[in-house]
């Protein structure tokens, strides 16, 4: 069995994603959490590239790691949240949460581990489904109506944010 470059990258990115995700939930300082989450998103974007979904990888970085996370960071800094102000749950509740999450993981893995185990993902010739050209065509032909509707969603979200955020 030979180890390809893809496999090596997969494992590195997986470890990075999981580690930074764990750091997100364990960091005491919210700002650190945000930064670790950005790291997670970068690893996930790396996975997307491995899966030859370049478009989504880029969008992920721009929208998530860029816009959204900056928004988070902005809010946290606006509220001046730091390690000292961070509320902590007591140890038992934390443990209960961790065990519950672990159980869920266990059960999900157990129930899904046999799913199409034979299927693999490899790069094949012409496998350019994630390229912007192909997705763009799809998006603006087949899915043009949902695409336009999502703009209305954005508009309403914007209006909502303004309404909620404004002082009385």
């Amino acid at each position: 069995m030979t180890i390809t470059i893809t496999q090596i990258l997969f494992w590195i990115l997986s470890v990075a994603a999981l580690f930074s995700a764990l750091m997100v939930i364990t960091s005491k300082n919210p700002v650190h959490s945000v930064l670790w989450l950005i790291a997670t998103f970068f690893s996930i974007s790396g996975h997307y590239i491995l899966l030859s979904a370049q478009f989504l990888a880029v969008v992920n970085i721009i929208v998530y790691a860029g816009a959204i996370m900056v928004l988070f960071l902005f809010v946290i800094m606006l509220m001046n949240l730091n390690r000292e102000t961070e509320p902590q749950k007591n140890r038992w509740i934390k443990m209960a949460g961790a065990i519950a999450g672990g159980c869920l993981l266990l059960v999900l893995v157990a129930s899904l581990k046999n799913v199409e185990s034979a299927s693999t993902i490899e790069d094949v010739k012409g496998g350019d489904v994630g390229f912007i050209k192909r997705l763009g065509k799809e998006l603006f032909s087949t899915y043009v109506v949902p695409f336009e509707i999502s703009s209305i969603l954005f508009l309403s979200a914007m209006v909502g944010a303004v309404v909620i955020g404004k002082k009385e």
Binding site: Q88, G97, S117
Partner: peptide, 25 residues
């Protein structure tokens, strides 16, 4: 890569998210 790897990775990330929701205030 076998699809199972991706499934397990995703589930792990998902569960970490859940643990986060459960443990943080």
């Amino acid at each position: 890569m076998p699809i199972t790897h991706y499934i397990i990775l995703s589930l792990a990330l998902f569960s970490i998210g859940i643990v986060g929701v459960l443990t943080r205030r």
